[in-house]
Design a protein around this nucleic acid. Structure first.
Length: 215
DNA sequence: ATCAATAAGGGGCTTACCTCA
DNA sequence: TGTGAGGTAAGCCCCTTATTG
């Protein structure tokens, strides 16, 4: 199904298509086998309009599947894109990044700023150095191999409960949780990131099991 | 020694906001 | 005064690494 987008007005000879892409669930689940029932996802396609298609063997195509359509399916974004584009997920990221040309990666800088600034964090840190896990963390600040923080059961419980309420946090919520648990806001943020990743993984595994049951 | 779980690092993309021509 | 382009900061995601039980 393809709707030509203003071919006369823009004269770009491009068309914008809305359709669906069938994806074998086996391929979706990279590391899992069985269940060959195909799944279809909504797809957005940019290409030459149909009347020009014959003149172009190679069509410029950009499928937005299904990241922006299926909520919480980010985890398999690259797998799906692999199928559509035939290679790594980074290709999709580049394809969709037209607006990001002027952007530059400044993650590490951001992180530095985050660590250096924010007196609130310092207060929080001072507090947490009195706790059980803080010794290891304190050592980490000094030179040497990074020590892995293990959250206490209480901390994990509170984070879990909070995650049930909302899977993402706004800055205030993050800060409040950090204060409550004597953690850095960054640690709360990381926990939620990892937790979301786990959640999506579990979601797909559940889906996979259901499929098997039905078959 | 091996493995699974998970905290954290690094890089990329998106979005909002600001400045300036 | 309104507008578009470019820069910046912040947040999120994916992938990966490192640590720990």
């Amino acid at each position: 199904m393809v709707f030509d987008s203003c071919p006369d007005i823009c004269n770009t000879r491009l068309s914008l298509g809305l359709g669906s892409v069938s994806i074998n669930k086996n391929d979706l689940q990279k590391h899992e086998s069985s269940s060959s029932s195909p799944k279809s996802f909504p797809s957005l396609t940019l290409g030459f309009s149909s009347d020009h298609l014959h003149h172009h063997e190679k069509t410029l195509k950009m499928d937005v599947t299904p990241k922006d359509v299926v909520i919480d399916h980010h985890h398999h974004q690259s797998s799906i894109t692999d199928l559509v584009h035939g290679s790594g997920g980074h290709q999709q990221q580049q394809a969709s990044s037209g607006s990001a040309v002027s952007s530059f990666s400044n993650s590490s800088v951001k992180r530095e700023i985050r660590e250096v600034s924010g007196t609130d964090d310092q207060d929080v840190e001072e507090e947490r150095y009195s706790g059980k896990t803080n010794v290891a963390d304190q050592e980490q600040d000094e030179e040497g191999p990074r020590k892995k923080l293990r959250l206490t059961k209480e901390q994990a419980f509170v984070l879990e409960e909070s995650f049930k309420e909302h899977s993402t946090l706004n800055p205030k919520q993050k800060q409040a949780l950090a204060n409550k648990l004597s953690l850095k806001p960054r640690q709360v943020e990381v926990w939620f990131q990892n937790r979301r990743a786990r959640y999506i993984f579990m979601f797909y595994n559940f889906d996979y099991r259901i499929d098997n049951l039905i078959i």
